[in-house]
C-alpha cells in the first residue's frame, strides 16, 4: 500500500512524533504537576526527581485546602457536579429541541426557513460578552440569575446552533425516497421520523451531542457572570486556587486533570463519530 521510500516513512514518523509531543506535552506536564507539592513544582531548574503525592487530589476531594495562611474551604467537587449537571442537561435539552428542528429545516423548505436557520447559527458568531450584560440585568429581574435553569437556558446559545447545523446536514444526506418509501408502506410521518430518519442520522446526532457537551463543559464566561459559587462549573471553580497566599499550582493541576478527564474519555470513546460528524458537514459525500 505504502510505496514511499524508507527514509520518507522515517521522516513522516518523526514529524508525527514531534506533533504528538507538542500537543500532548502540556497534558503530560499537568499530570506530573498534579502529583507534586507547590514547592517541588516551583523548583528552579525544574526536575523530574520528586516524591509523588496524592495530597492535591485529597485536598480537592475533601474540600479542605491547607496553605501557609491557613485552611481554606473549596467546593471543587460541587463544581465538578455542577459541570456534569449543566452540560448533561443543556445537551439533553438542545437535542430535544434541536433534532426535530434540524429535521424540519432539512425536509421542509418553508418561507424564511433559511433565514431562521442562519439566525440560529449567528448566535455562535456573537461574542458572549455582547449579550451577557443585558442578560444579567433581565435574568435578575425575572429571577433566573444564579439558577441552574437560567444557566441551562443560556447554554442553549452554545449547544443548540451546533446540534441544529450538524444534524441538519445528516438529515439532508438521507435520500428523501427512503422516507417516502416508508410512508407509502403505510407508516405515519412520526413513525417515519422515529424509525427511519433518527436511526440513519444516529452517528451525526451522537457527534453533535458530543461536541455540544464538550463546548458546554468548557464554557467559562456565562457561568462566571451568571452564577454564584455554589452553581459554578469547574472552569470557573479553578479560579479559587488563586489564593491570597499564592497560586496553588498543584491543586490547579489536579483540578484540571479531574475536569478534563470526563470529556477526554468521552472524546476517546467516540473518536470515530466525532471525526465523521465534523468532516461530513465540510465535505458532503
Amino acid at each position: 500500500m505504502d510505496h514511499a521510500p524508507i527514509w520518507e516513512r522515517w521522516l513522516r514518523g518523526v514529524a508525527l512524533i514531534l506533533v504528538v509531543l507538542f500537543f500532548m506535552f502540556p497534558i503530560f506536564w499537568i499530570l506530573v504537576m498534579s502529583v507534586q507539592t507547590n514547592e517541588t513544582i516551583l523548583r528552579s531548574p525544574p526536575s523530574m526527581a520528586f516524591e509523588p503525592t496524592l495530597q492535591n487530589y485529597q485536598a480537592l476531594i475533601t474540600g479542605k485546602l491547607e496553605t501557609q495562611a491557613g485552611s481554606l474551604d473549596i467546593a471543587f467537587m460541587q463544581n465538578l457536579w455542577n459541570s456534569v449537571l449543566l452540560s448533561v442537561c443543556s445537551v439533553a435539552l438542545a437535542l430535544v429541541l434541536g433534532v426535530p428542528a434540524a429535521y424540519a429545516f432539512a425536509r421542509h423548505k418553508f418561507r424564511g426557513s433559511e433565514d431562521i436557520a442562519f439566525t440560529l447559527l449567528s448566535f455562535r458568531f456573537a461574542p458572549p460578552l455582547l449579550v451577557l450584560l443585558p442578560l444579567t440585568l433581565y435574568f435578575q429581574d425575572i429571577g433566573l440569575a444564579d439558577t441552574y435553569v437560567g444557566l441551562i437556558w443560556v447554554y442553549q446559545l452554545i449547544c443548540l446552533p451546533l446540534i441544529l447545523w450538524i444534524v441538519r446536514g445528516y438529515f439532508e444526506d438521507i435520500s428523501p425516497d427512503i422516507e417516502h418509501a416508508y410512508r407509502i408502506a403505510g407508516h405515519s410521518w412520526l413513525s417515519t421520523f422515529r424509525r427511519i430518519a433518527l436511526p440513519l442520522a444516529g452517528p451525526g446526532i451522537a457527534a453533535a451531542g458530543l461536541l455540544a457537551f464538550i463546548f458546554a463543559w468548557n464554557n467559562f464566561i456565562f457561568a462566571l457572570v451568571l452564577a454564584s459559587a455554589d452553581k459554578q462549573p469547574v472552569t470557573v471553580g479553578a479560579l479559587a486556587f488563586v489564593t491570597a497566599s499564592g497560586i496553588q499550582y498543584g491543586q490547579i493541576a489536579a483540578a484540571v486533570v479531574l475536569s478534563i478527564a470526563p470529556t477526554l474519555a468521552l472524546a476517546l470513546y467516540a473518536q470515530r463519530y466525532l471525526v465523521e460528524g465534523l468532516s461530513l458537514g465540510a465535505v458532503k459525500g
Binding site: S175, D177, I178, H180, A181, Y182, R183, I184, A185, G186, H187, S188, I196
Partner: peptide, 16 residues
C-alpha cells in the same frame, strides 16, 4: 401517502 393504499418500487430501490 400512508392512507392511499398504494405500493411503490423506486428506481433507486430506496431500501432502508
Amino acid at each position: 401517502p400512508e392512507q392511499r393504499g398504494v405500493g411503490m418500487a423506486f428506481q433507486n430501490f430506496a431500501l432502508f
